[in-house]
Simulated assay, not measured.
Amino acid sequence: MTDLLPANSLVRKIWITETDAYRDHLLRLDAESRRLRFGGGVSDAFIQKYVKLASTLDAVLYGYYVDGVLRGVAELRAVRDKTDVDAEAAFSIEREWQSHGVGSALMSQMLLAARNRGIRTLHMICLADNQRMQQLAKKFDAQFSFEYGSVIGEVETPYPTPVSVMREVVADSANFATAMLDVHKRLFKFPLPRLRAEGDTEQAQTAAIK
């Protein structure tokens, strides 16, 4: 149920060490995409605080990466109630990558993560004019309700199985290795200065004296 994504992109879990990438992604959202993601206009300062809060909560994040840069995120957060079997899903995709199947790819991972955590119903809450979000929910057979200018789409998930759990475990193992490579590239993207040989040092000192 997902479209074919470009070869230079992938969807994978976002790890706790990558909160800066999540922040930078949200800061790159244009004003309209921010409004649709958060239900209203928000400032850069709000996003800074939101990311810090999100990193302390029991949330599962999946990201869409293009050439190692985070361009879309799906966030799964449990709804704390008596049964604790529901969760909310929120999506943010930078404008250039919207309407290219990214939301469907992220949604597929959200459903797998929700299923493996015993979550029976996934709630997708959006503004009434967020047609793209509603189309995504319809694609996954959501049931809709309307409340105070918002639309709530509910998607039922099947019970977990050993196979579904193994799918996530195997993907996480590969994704963690990929994340560590991305971190390594960011840390060492600047070339190290060339160490001068002893002869080079002597020549430099002689040139300085002259």
Score class of each variant (00 low, 15 high):
L26Q: 05
P6R: 02
F190I: 06
T83Y: 07
S108W: 03
A137T: 13
V169P: 00
P160I: 05
H100C: 11
A179C: 04
E94Y: 01
G39W: 02
R35W: 07
A78D: 10
S164A: 03
L192A: 14
A208Y: 12
A142Q: 06
I93T: 13
I93Q: 06
T161D: 10
M124P: 04
D141K: 15
R117C: 10
A59N: 09
F140R: 04
E96V: 04
Q205K: 09
V11T: 05
L122F: 11
S99T: 12
A89E: 02
E88W: 01
D44H: 13
V85I: 15
L195V: 14
G72W: 10
L26Y: 08
G68H: 05
D20H: 07
R23P: 01
D182M: 10
H123Y: 09
I14A: 01
F91I: 09
L26F: 11
L70W: 06
A171H: 08
L112C: 08
V170Y: 00
A174D: 01
D84G: 04
H100F: 05
E154W: 00
L29P: 10
D81A: 03
Q131I: 15
I14N: 04
P6A: 04
N8Q: 13
R167D: 10
I14F: 03
A90K: 11
M124Y: 14
S104C: 01
L136R: 10
T157P: 13
V163C: 00
R80C: 06
R196Y: 03
A204F: 08
A113Q: 02
M124I: 15
